[in-house]
Deep mutational scan, measured.
Amino acid sequence: MTEYKLVVVGAGGVGKSALTIQLIQNHFVDEYDPTIEDSYRKQVVIDGETCLLDILDTAGQEEYSAMRDQYMRTGEGFLCVFAINNTKSFEDIHHYREQIKRVKDSEDVPMVLVGNKCDLPSRTVDTKQAQDLARSYGIPFIETSAKTRQGVDDAFYTLVREIRKHKEKMSKDGKKKKKKSKTKCVIM
């Protein structure tokens, strides 16, 4: 069974824990209790493949930012979460993405942009803004509501699919490099 290491990042209060708990335990946590770091595991079937999701729910508070490099190193894919009623959390996505790329030393890291709290009427981040940002990053965008469960499975499952595509691409690139290195030079 394939294991996928997913990391949920975003500013404090955007609903990272609520999304994760909704996926794992099928219930909505409405009281806000700032996370330092929590880890969850769940076995699911995605596109006919049974897999184990190892999900790291991270601290959004700035005082825990020193811990970010460590979990970013171990993560295979990242859910970059903002709240649709919090423009600052949307603007912060850029910083999370840049930090992930720096730590992973790669421009090509599996990510999904997630606009959470889409059940709320007080939207300050337009869907088109988020779609445009995701398009500019070359990553999928999904709106979710941890409260109603809308888009929750889709967000995590899409990230797994992005990781699969990335692994497939990397193995193809690896095979191309191996083929090239088999060419021999004969000096007579």
Rank of each mutant, 00 (worst) to 15 (best):
L159H: 02
Y64V: 06
P121L: 09
L19W: 03
Y4P: 15
I139E: 12
L113Q: 06
D105H: 11
R97D: 14
H27V: 11
L113D: 02
Q43V: 08
E31T: 06
E3G: 03
N116P: 00
L120W: 10
D69P: 03
K128C: 06
T35H: 00
T127D: 10
F78A: 03
D54C: 01
T148R: 13
G174L: 11
E107G: 08
V114A: 03
R41V: 09
G77E: 01
I100G: 03
N116F: 00
Q150P: 13
A59H: 01
A66Q: 07
E107H: 04
A155C: 14
M67T: 08
D57P: 00
V29C: 10
Q70I: 04
C51S: 08
Q70S: 13
Y4D: 12
L52D: 15
I187H: 11
D108C: 08
R161W: 10
Y40A: 00
I187Y: 14
I142G: 03
T183C: 04
I36S: 00
G60D: 01
V29L: 08
T50W: 04
S122Q: 11
S17E: 00
G13A: 11
L53R: 02
S89L: 02
I55T: 08
T20V: 07
G12N: 15
T50Y: 12
T158Q: 10
N116Y: 00
Y71F: 11
S89C: 09
P34K: 04
D30W: 06
K5Q: 15
Y137V: 09
M188K: 11
T2A: 11
I100N: 01
V109F: 11
T74I: 05
V152G: 10
I187S: 12
S145A: 15
G151F: 07
E31A: 05
I100T: 08
F156W: 08
H95N: 13
Y96H: 06
V9L: 14
E162M: 09
R149Y: 14
I139K: 02
D92A: 10
A155D: 03
L19Y: 03
T58P: 00
P121R: 06
D132K: 09
K172T: 15
C80A: 04
Y32E: 01
V14S: 10
R123Y: 08
D153N: 08
D54V: 01
D69Q: 09
